[in-house]
Design a protein around this nucleic acid. Sequence first.
DNA 1: ATAGGGTTAG
Length: 695
Amino acid sequence: MATAVHPAAALPATAAPSPPRPPSVRAALGHFPQLHASLIKSGELTSSPKSFHSLLEAAAHGASPAQLAYAVRLFRLGSRPPLSVPCYNVLMRAFLRAGHLEDALHLFVEMLDAASIWPDQHTVACALKSCSRMRTLDAGRGVQAYAVKRGLMVDRFVLSSLIHMYASCGDVAAARLLFDAVEEKGVIMWNAIIAGYFKNGDWKEVVELFKGMHEVGAPFDEVTLVSVATACGRTCDSNLGKWIGGYVEEKGMLGNQNLVTALVDMYAKCGELGKARSLFDGMQSRDVVAWSAMISGYTQADQCQEALTLFSEMQVAEVEPNDVTMVSVLSACAVLGALETGKWVHSYIRKKCLPLTVVLGTALVDFYAKCGCIDSAVEAFESMPVKNSWTWTALIKGMASNGRGREALELFSSMRKASIKPTDVTFIGVLMACSHNCLVEEGRQHFDSMTQDYGIQPRIEHYGCVVDLLGRAGLIDEAYQFIRAMTIEPNTVIWRALLSSCAVQKNVEVGQEAFKQIISLDPSHSGDYTLLSNIYASVGRWKDAAMIRRQMKDMGIQKTPGCSLIELDGVVFEFFAEDSDHPQLREIYEKVEEMINKIKVAGYVPNTADARLDVDEYEKEVSVSHHSEKLAIAFGLVKLRPGATIRLSKNLRVCTDCHSATKLISKVYNREIVVRDRSRFHHFKDGTCSCNDYW
DNA sequence: ATAGGGTTAG
């Protein structure tokens, strides 16, 4: 591939009057066009290889594409001394710096073709570096063959580049063989092999190597610590992480931006957000990586509001976000259901032409799917130049949780046709889709195929999906037998899936058993008591229902407060049941009353099964009407522009009353309402819900 | 005459 040579317009139109000759060519960095002219005038350019090299080097060292283009033109010039090996090397390095990896490698090939030019250890190291970055193992091996033939394999630079090349191309074993054979391992060699394991995600080995270095007294430096600190974060090795943190402070290395960023990342991943933040705040300058590390720290610690706040501070600080930043921001938006903010991020990505990498594209797909905008998720999916199994999985799960199980399964078959290997998470999406559409036989087949065809051992989540599938299909006894036959110990999630199915199917006997199992594992979850109590109530066993409520009260078990989030103009508002801490309180409660009255006309009958028992029926109705979800919907009706879809996300399952009320609200107010609960989406429109009343 | 190894993500 040829490098685009920029037009001479980048150079001054008229040469400045010849300045007096500078004392050294190097000192003229930045004035090289004028210098060039004076060298031509004096005839030195063609007669002195040394001057030519210096001029070339000065141009090649420039940061701008125009300067690189200038260097290329010098290099290709007819009237110049014969090219030396260092001339090639200088230009190769410039190509590498500018990211023109193929051009760099091409120069190596050109040297092999040229008479009386032999690539040396510098050339080989550069060529290997471009192979590393391009991940072309074959080319790398070719360069290695040349190095062997020329006896360059004793050079430390060649060796470390080679180790780096093998590791970057995914062959850490080969890198390790080379490393082990090196007699005197300096810090660079250690860093190269550590980076090798790092690049391949083998964080444990990074930590082990460092401990090994310590034992043999091998020297390490700041670069070593960057890799090791990061690995500590990934493995949650907070002991070693803290030791490194202390060492860095003690040795006065806090000025190293990369190192401090690695510490910020490490502390955040070890759960020490406060320590991470104070290091971050103490940095004298913060680049995009530092900001991204801190933002991702908040996102991964589930402090998504904090993540978005920090993101706006980043914009105030005028640091341009990159694709990596946006991945964290989008995943924070996905968790919060912050559709407007995420959409803004999407348009920013397009406006700034940020590279739509697989990770970023997948984050976009996931974001739209988790905000209930499944069509936008499909669009984002289709716009991606490269997709991997994560991408497919995000869309399959999105389809399944948005009530489009059929399409999820069709996607899964396209995924297999495209030879993209499904992961364990893909199968969670597939099984969710089956359970949503009540496809019992298909679900069983996928569950078996997962192990038989793909060698994936079922995790507790997969078992949970199957229990859900069988239970919702009404096969309660089979679901119970399935749990009994599990090869791993069932947890509360499994039993809870069975209990929910029993609630749908009004199966008292198995419901009691599931409840007993749950209580023996974790008696503190209020939702379990509510479910069993509802089962009793649904078959008219009011006394038993009340008894369970009393048991819950006696044990001091608190209901998890219901909380609904709704976004308005990029700000996420939180509502709790009976909320009394909101600026527009009166307006909202008035709207709730209006809502309830209107839907009552349309046939709404309050369902107070989930309400407190110690109050009279009227109070129960009022209490149910003040569920966080209804407050948030009322807020949406008051604040959003007419006709705009109301989107909210809540922390619990949608209760029966809110579900039937919301269906009628969507009809009476002619509004689409999208509710994300803890496990799926409900798209309410014209009085119906996408879940077919089955959740 | 010229160099090597480093941080953020679904």
